[in-house]
Design a protein around this nucleic acid. Structure first.
Lengths: 251, 251
DNA sequence: AAATACAATCAGTCATGTATGTTTTTATTA
DNA sequence: TAATAAAAACATACATGACTGATTGTATTT
């Protein structure tokens, strides 16, 4: 709706730059290739052949470019030419790896989803940082990263885009479930208080995700964040069952 | 990006229906006109002339249609032909009232902004309903209405759209200020506890707005809403200064 | 040589802004 | 007061630019 044509049109020179950087990447890849033949397992993760490795790398570059585009320009302005440019590839080459835009988006969503779950798992694998404060700050850091921003951008778009919703909603449900499972593993002490646990989890997610969006969209001042996080931490400790308070609480 | 061309094309018949309903409205307006000449102040709110009333009505129809489009199809798919169709008007007629898409969006934002503030003021003007529970439920009802959904849709789009941001961000700041002023008027008892007041306000907005978005986008189950609202209400009462607890609290 | 990665080009569709008609309302005056 | 010119509301048509999917062509790998 509100997009001035002059701004939309990308200059020819910019395209050339992209093409140029593309060639640079190609050269770098060629060099990698010659050395890679001696250690196949490292780069040849997929089919074992060189082309497969190249394809996998290009695919991954495209997915990363898609996420960058969504974060920088929004989902609506993430067009196939733009992603190709961002990846330093021609659109034709891109269409070779993903038969259409929908395929690219779908692959990106799945990749994003797994990225978020991996990040969450890594956080869980640090038993020395299982106190409430650290976990809150860790999740707060997460919701400010590109993966979450892109995910929210997609979630908003999916509200009015059935095709997107069909891909995204099942994944969101899976994320919620796995998120909950991880959280249970993190806090075995809450096992006998499922209601409180549920409240603490919902509260954490709502406040931190809501705040991240509010700050991103200018609905809230950044200055209020520390106050809110501190309050949330205290709240979680207050909700916590007395048995757990000794192990995970600090206050 | 992900929009199948077949779905995008709107059938001819739908357009005809819009045209027809348009004529119906015109006829209704004509009838109003003959009677309106006896009581000019009612319908001729603007310049006093009949055309002015007609223009105002059409303008308002266009703004409402824009909001409906944003809510139904998302900001990105809110195109000028779509809005015109939704309003039952030709695109040319629409361009007569708003010289371009930007003007329409800007007017819509201002209208939305004032609508939200009016709704908030109405809530404030009921001294009999100034207890915490009622206020929370009132605001919760607000953030589920089209005005808030559209506003969020615009806020997300503005993150990556400078032109939109230039219109929206100043208005958002104004909204925050007016919102705060209204809230102060609502709770004079908190006057001597600005820090607590700030926390209670931020908490309320973050939780309810965040939850509304989360529910809308499928990130959260609707079932968890009552639990969260109850908790928020209790929280506000806990944060409240002791002097106020007697008047506005229910415990 | 067959297949795969990649590039370039084309036709179709849609949105945007603008220019040009048509009808209705308002103002003016005979 | 009836006729009419000016203005405003509304409709239609056109030119431009962008994205999409598809086709065709080239170089590299197997």
């Amino acid at each position: 709706m509100l997009a001035s044509p002059a701004v939309m049109g990308v200059s020819e020179s910019e395209y050339s730059i992209a093409q140029h950087s593309n060639q640079a990447i190609q050269m770098a890849l060629s060099r990698t290739r010659t050395t890679a033949s001696t250690k196949p397992a490292a780069t040849r993760s997929n089919g074992g052949t060189l082309q497969a490795a190249k394809a996998a790398q290009t695919r991954s570059r495209l997915l990363e470019a898609t996420v960058r585009c969504i974060v920088k320009h929004g989902y609506a302005n993430t067009t196939t030419p733009r992603v190709a440019k961002e990846a330093g590839l021609s659109r034709g080459a891109m269409m070779h790896h993903f038969e259409n835009g929908a395929a690219l988006i779908k692959a990106t969503i799945i990749e994003l989803h797994e990225k978020r779950l991996r990040a969450f798992r890594r956080a869980a694998e640090r038993p020395e940082e299982h106190d409430v404060d650290t976990l809150v700050e860790t999740y707060w850091a997460q919701v400010q990263k590109p993966a979450f921003i892109a995910f929210h951008e997609l979630a908003v778009a999916a509200r009015t885009d059935k095709e997107l919703a069909d891909i995204l909603l099942p994944l969101q449900e899976e994320f919620r479930d796995r998120f909950n499972a991880q959280a249970h593993a993190l806090f075995p002490e809450w096992g006998d208080s499922p209601t409180q646990f549920d409240l603490a989890m919902s509260l954490s997610q709502t406040i931190m995700e809501g705040m991240a969006i509010a700050v991103q969209t200018g609905a809230m001042d950044r200055e209020k964040v520390p106050m809110m996080l501190t309050h949330l931490e205290n709240q979680i400790r207050a909700i916590m069952p007395a048995t757990a308070r000794a192990t995970a609480g600090k206050s």
